[in-house]
Design a protein around this nucleic acid. Structure first.
Lengths: 344, 344
DNA sequence: TTGAAAGCGGTACCAA
DNA sequence: TTGGTACCGCTTTCAA
């Protein structure tokens, strides 16, 4: 579908030429007054600025970008915006990019690989100065397009595997392992994993694998898993927990794929009279704002989202300026609260 | 600062011309094969498509937009991305716009009017097909620029006052009044208002005014307010609640400017042995995912964010297609939970 | 059904 | 310090 800008009223949008005409100079001079002010006589500059102000001139970057073979758009592709999972990364990233006059073009794939391809294509069609994208696992065509575009590509949130160019994130397998190790240290032995795991949520899958591997290494029985490919929410967590407890009686610890799900798990346990952390331990992932506010407060993993946003911005600037690609590992930590605190 | 795209490796980015050359037709034909396929002989079309696929051709929309005097960018200006306040609106909005091949260019002002002006200018420089922006209160220059741009402008989240063009939102004064009325109905009489109210958060100011007016109308003593111009968080809520209780002993209900703040208020009250809802009632705003998961569960206001996102997308499409500007009021509701339930 | 040519609004290079 | 001119890659007449 082609879109036309609705009738823009009487006054046409001013161009460089209209400013030039008004002041009585060439387009060229006006252009330079903007980009290299000190190459233009000061009084002329004042006249030009005045004219621009008066006509509400706004440069046309479509033209500028086309001509200059440069664009100051950064494409940002995330898999979700809910629950602050990536919203705060985007927030920090875009603020940091702003310092360099880079504009964020946003796309949200909602964990859909078809959308991902479509969006990447769409973003590349704006000839972005760089692309930041969640994850390191993408369909081959996406990788091919990104490579062919020549733009620096920063993969965020996850690391490992085949990085296209530059990555800023952490090892999710280690997170899963840390969850298991923590639970084990608190004396839990019958672990379960619960949550929303969408097909393309490779990170969740890695965390689950880390959990399983660590549990096995400690000689624990296999991790019971009860997941579903829907969006995570307290309601989902509650439902999954109820089903889990019905089917498996021996479970004494539940690792959740997100805090939102964990909140629902806590509620389900409370409603069923299971004491947390005494009978069952619960650990989340994400450290959402409310994790410290539920009862009992939730032990969880806190990734440093703001740091990822900031470092991604740094990486973008560096790459644009010709620095070499590199992978940056960003710390996270396990925040222990009451939902797993068995020993005082 | 001007940005150059880092060295793009050996292979230059393919253009329409390169495809044309390869197939042995004119640029024109290739262009039409894309935009009006049925005006091109089918076998030619196949060849063209094959060439595009092989060369990983991605159209250059900078050029397309310039030439066509149209752009399929929608500028989206929000004041925050944290705490799902607007993240889910953006999420829904962009998904809906996608259906119409409209691209979202995002800006986050963080409640800073200088940034707002800067962003609006920046977005307009992309000649967007429309602009969606949070709020109806903007600096005069912003309004002027938006008007002059000729693009449809959809103001979201709030309504009332001087709408530039089209608005999709609700009356925040009414929300504040509803909070007061609910508290009063539950038997509370000494109201306080607590939270993060940034200088440019006109919506919060409206809600506060609504609360005060309704309290006064009911003959209650003046609402005690304790606010601060920082970002809202449970920690802030806890701190403000503690200070509030130290300075004012008679308070029996606290309205919070956000759920995040309310969570902290609940924690502060619990730690001080004040019973909720018996001694003190607490009401939030926003209905964050965790509101039903804290103890006691939080009574709050639930705006229909997804609906706002969807209706904004609809409004954008309608305006682009020449429909008249109009204001759409979106419902919200008060979700009563335990934090204010005094009567069974 | 296809192609030639004139822009779109800037930028960049070179000459004045 | 300023202006002329040739693009940037695509769309859009208008002819062929």
């Amino acid at each position: 579908m082609k879109i036309e800008i609705a009738d823009k009223g009487a006054r046409p949008i001013p161009t460089l030429a209209s400013i030039a005409e008004r002041v009585g100079v060439s387009v060229n001079t006006v252009s330079r007054a903007l980009r290299a002010p000190n190459t233009v006589r000061i009084e002329l500059r004042h006249q030009i600025n005045a004219a621009m102000e008066e006509l509400n001139y706004v440069p046309n970057r479509l033209a500028g970008g086309l001509s200059g073979a440069r664009s100051d758009i950064v494409g940002v592709v995330v898999t979700s915006l809910y629950y602050s999972e990536f919203a705060s990364i985007v927030d920090t990233l875009q603020s940091a990019l702003l310092e360099h006059d880079l504009q964020v073009m946003l796309a949200n794939t909602r964990y859909n690989e078809t959308q991902e391809l479509r969006f990447v294509r769409s973003i590349l069609s704006w000839r972005p100065a760089a692309v930041a994208i969640i994850g390191v696992d993408h369909p081959p065509k996406v990788v091919e397009l990104l490579r062919a575009s020549g733009a620096p590509v920063i993969e965020m949130w996850d690391i490992g595997g085949e990085v296209i160019d530059t990555a800023v994130g952490f090892d999710h397998t280690r997170v899963g392992a840390a969850q298991a190790e923590h639970l084990i240290a608190q004396g839990y032995r019958h672990l379960a994993f619960v949550g929303s795991v969408r097909d393309n949520d490779k990170r969740a899958q890695k965390r689950l694998r880390g959990l399983e591997t660590a549990a096995a290494a400690a000689g624990l029985p296999p991790v019971i898993r009860h997941t579903i490919a829907e969006g995570g929410s307290p309601e989902l967590g509650e439902r999954l927990a109820i089903e889990l407890l019905q089917q498996h009686s021996g479970i004494d610890a539940i690792a959740c794929n997100s805090d939102a799900v964990a909140f629902g798990v806590l509620r389900a346990l409370r409603n069923r009279g299971r004491r947390v952390p005494e009978d069952i331990g619960v650990i989340g992932f994400g450290d959402s704002e409310a994790a410290s506010c539920v009862t009992p407060s939730l032990t969880t993993i806190r990734p440093d989202r703001e740091r990822i946003g900031r470092l991604t911005a740094d990486a973008i600037i560096a790459r644009i300026n010709g620095a070499k690609p590199r992978t940056t590992v960003v710390d996270w930590k396990l925040v222990m609260r009451k939902s797993t605190r068995r020993q005082p």
